[in-house]
């Protein structure tokens, strides 16, 4: 049915536009405005021009936080996406794998804070399961202060992230593999291809679009990563696991520098947008395969 009045259409879309405006546009514009001020939340904000942005570009902790989040994203591409893909390929080519699939997906359903607390206990150097297991197996020399060592804390968080989300990506890849036409796979098998070859040479290339989405989810999710870092290390030891989100929260809620924290959030948004745009551009330039 064609709309009879432009005015009517405007009125009908108004609720959605208003809600979007108040929930997304207004906070973003407000944050942008606050990023140009000095404000402790009590007094009237003072206009500071680009001073907060200039400070952010010279803030070693903020800059290094992007290095940490990049490490996290790269590591999780392996331990979440790649491992999820391998798990999916392994489980889909074997019978009676229903229970492992459910078991691997369970961490996705648990609250992140609960997982972070539990893994914090696992890594606890005094009474944690990991050090205790190493001790009982005779590897006392390998017992570590896992979350207190600057070289180990970030990899430990990546490992926990992989434990949680590999099941999530496995489920996505399972759905993608289930949609594949069986005739191509059967033909490959008849031609003598083994399961390993069928997986890497036939199945994986055929779900390239799904893999791209999984990678994008992993990257954007990584940029937004907060809860695991906050609960497990809170950026420590000595800012070596600080990511932009934890530093932003400290600036606003601990240091009461709302203007500076807003500038950090604007920069984080810009970085996220740039990454997403670059990813989409690269993805489109390679979009030549048939989609399934």
């Amino acid at each position: 049915m064609k709309p009879t009045s432009k005015f009517g259409v405007l009125v009908l879309v108004a609720p959605a536009v208003l809600i979007y405006g108040f929930a997304v546009v207004a906070p973003f514009v407000g944050t942008l405005g606050l990023s140009l001020t000095r404000w402790n939340g009590f007094n009237l904000p003072e206009f500071a021009g680009a001073a907060n942005f200039s400070r952010a570009f010279h803030d070693k902790i903020f800059i290094s936080s992007f290095g940490h989040v990049t490490f996290y994203i790269v590591a999780t591409l392996f331990v979440e996406v790649l491992f999820g893909l391998i798990l999916s390929g392994f489980l889909s080519s074997h019978r009676f794998m229903g229970f492992p699939r459910v078991a691997l997906f369970i961490p996705v359903m648990l609250p992140m804070v609960v997982i972070a607390v539990l893994w914090g206990a696992v890594f606890n150097p005094d009474y944690g399961v990991l050090n205790a297991a190493m001790g009982s197996l005779g590897f006392e020399g390998m017992q570590k202060v896992w979350l207190g060592d600057p070289k180990l804390a970030l990899p430990a968080i990546c490992l926990v992230s992989g434990w949680i989300f590999s099941g999530f990506y496995m489920a996505i890849f399972n759905a993608a593999f289930a949609r594949l036409p069986t005739d191509v796979i059967e033909s490959a098998r008849l031609d003598g291809a083994g399961e390993f070859r069928v997986f890497w040479r036939i199945k994986v290339p055929m779900i390239r679009q799904v893999t791209s989405v999984a990678i994008l989810l992993c990257i954007t999710g990584g940029i937004q990563g907060f809860d695991l870092f906050y609960v497990m290390t809170n950026g420590g030891p000595y800012n070596t696991t600080e990511v932009p989100t934890t530093y932003m929260v400290k600036s606003v809620f601990r240091d009461m520098e709302i203007g500076y924290g807003s500038a950090l959030s604007v920069l984080l948004t810009v970085v996220g947008l740039v990454v997403a745009i670059v990813f989409r551009t690269v993805q489109k330039s390679r979009q030549t395969e048939v989609e399934y």
């Binding site: 606890n124 202060v145 979350l147 207190g148 290390t233």
Partner: peptide
Amino acid sequence: NKSANTIPDNE
């Protein structure tokens, strides 16, 4: 304790 910087006050 070696764990000093990794455990909260209550631990």
